[in-house]
Write a protein that binds this DNA or RNA. Structure first.
Lengths: 116, 116
DNA sequence: TGATCATATTCCGTTATCGGAAAACGTCAA
DNA sequence: TTGACGTTTTCCGATAACGGAATATGATCA
């Protein structure tokens, strides 16, 4: 039972998971191929335990997959989990160019307001 | 001076700002035009104070602009702030189709591992 | 079995979110 | 000035992320 809500868990969403810069770095790194925890940690300059924790979060939201048992674990990218983010963002692309116009309108409006 | 780091502030990033579902809803709503706080609150079923707080976060990261002084405030979308998110995501698009193949490979691998 | 390497988890303290409720501003009209 | 409306802020309690350090688990090889 939930008593009080604070910020949503990092593991609740791809949106929340990628809010952390280091986790984005991990995903970016994994674009070039699978890697064991140690490599991730070393290449991104973080402690193995930290890397492991971040990878756990990414695994829980399905952005990363663990392959291979035994001593060697390989983490690989599963970018499908980013689709919801991309889809949500897609609705805004048309606004990027337009935003400049809208900013112009805003500035014009501001001028008018101050002149009045 | 920073003593200990917790989760990054919601206002530090577009990434952090859009991690909250209600803030995404607000941005989506504002695609159809500017709105005063009350309207946002009502249309999304949240208290005015909550809406105002969310809008403040969005304003601080530059995703939203405040127009008009006086009693009537109008909040409008400034989607340019989403560009960093889109750009980061862009690097992964090529992987979405590929991810299925990679999943196949993963499953094959799993089979092999379990047979051994 | 015991040592060693690779990963994962737990413990700790600090910080900041989130919602609701209540109170504080700020503006405009009577 | 008083009152009403629209908006923002403050206070509160509960939750949990984050890093580092230490510890635990797990697998492999001598």
């Amino acid at each position: 039972m939930i008593t009080a809500m604070a910020r949503a868990a990092t593991t609740s969403d791809a949106f929340n998971a990628i809010a952390e810069p280091q986790r984005r770095d991990i995903l970016t790194l994994l674009r070039s191929g699978e890697r064991p925890v140690t490599d991730v940690a070393e290449e991104l300059g973080m402690s193995p335990s930290r890397a492991s924790k971040h990878l756990r979060v990414l695994r829980e939201v399905g952005l990363v997959r663990l392959r291979g048992a035994g001593k060697q674990h390989f983490y690989g990218l599963d970018a499908r989990g980013l689709r919801p983010v991309h889809e949500w963002l897609g609705g805004f692309e048309e606004f990027w160019a337009g935003s400049f116009d809208r900013l112009d309108a805003y500035v014009q409006d501001l001028k008018r307001t101050q002149e009045d």
